[in-house]
């Protein structure tokens, strides 16, 4: 994929119209930036794999801040949207679950969102390639080519995806979403691309829990990699061997 500077230049060369002579000058200038521009601006890096480590012992059953922050950041679950559809039809990017161990009776809570699998079943089954994994391991839906068949929702073992059941307006600029397409946690890809941590991670830290640790799983020196090496941890539905990028500890 070229960047826009190269695209513009190519078109100008091809069209050769008189009208283009004005832009030719800037086209030439832009050309010089062509090769390196994208790298400088945070292209999804295949040398990284973003992930989360969720420490259930730090997660408070009463706190819902990660879910609220996700709703605000990504614009889902607003009252105007939820009022006149059933709760089963309401969007759900991240949810809090409270679990009781059947054998010991111990109760824990943790957020569940898209687990950003290394081998995502939703990507395998998508007929058009709308369900995709970025170079940096983030799994998300390209709503531009999603046809709304919902096969990815059938395939996801975590119920991480939801379908937009009705028309919506005034979406946040950073998160376009609309009727008839499937959506899920994208690990706040627009925030990561602009060098920021995901909204849930920020909210959890602000709430004083720091139960969600964010980082690069491929970097052995990153805090998340060190923590994973140090403490026992698990993936949900480990039997499926999907190698999720979201891991749990003390569950």
């Amino acid at each position: 994929m070229t960047n826009r500077a190269e695209l513009t230049r190519r078109d100008i060369m091809k069209s050769g119209a008189a009208a283009a002579t004005v832009t030719l000058a800037s086209g030439v200038t832009l050309m010089a930036f062509g090769g390196t521009a994208a790298e400088a601006s945070g292209r999804a890096d295949s040398g990284k794999r973003w992930g989360l480590l969720i420490d259930a012992s730090k997660c408070s059953p009463d706190c819902n801040d990660c879910v609220t922050a996700c709703k605000t950041e990504n614009g889902w679950g607003q009252d105007i949207e939820s009022d006149h559809i059933s709760s089963e039809q309401a969007p759900e990017w991240i949810r809090k679950v409270t679990l009781r161990d059947k054998s010991t009776g111990r109760t824990t809570s943790a957020p569940v969102m898209c687990q950003h699998c290394e081998e995502p079943p939703c990507v395998d089954v998508c007929p058009t390639g709308a369900s995709m994994k970025r170079a940096d391991g983030i799994v998300l839906v390209d709503k531009h080519i999603c046809i709304g068949c919902r096969y990815c929702m059938m395939a996801c073992p975590y119920k991480a995806r939801s379908f937009v059941h009705e028309p919506i307006t005034d979406q946040p600029e950073q998160n376009p979403r609309g009727k008839g397409t499937v959506e899920s946690c994208n690990l706040c890809a627009p925030r990561i691309d602009s060098g920021r941590i995901p909204a849930c991670v920020e909210a959890c830290e602000k709430a004083g829990h720091s139960a969600i640790l964010f980082g690069d799983l491929k970097d052995p020196d990153s805090p998340i990699s060190k923590a994973l090496k140090q403490y026992p941890n698990a993936a949900l539905r480990e039997d499926l061997e999907l190698n999720p990028g979201v891991r749990y500890t003390n569950l």
């Binding site: 990507v123 007929p127 999603c146 046809i147 709304g148 068949c149 008839g180």
Partner: peptide, 28 residues
């Protein structure tokens, strides 16, 4: 099936863009 799609207007996408690891795409 087509009329039940969330975006039935994008049938052309389903007919032209294939992800060959999907049995759905093969079925098309």
């Amino acid at each position: 099936v087509v009329l039940d799609l969330g975006r039935a207007d994008r049938l052309i996408v389903a007919m032209t863009t294939y992800n060959f690891s999907s049995i759905f795409a093969w079925n098309v």
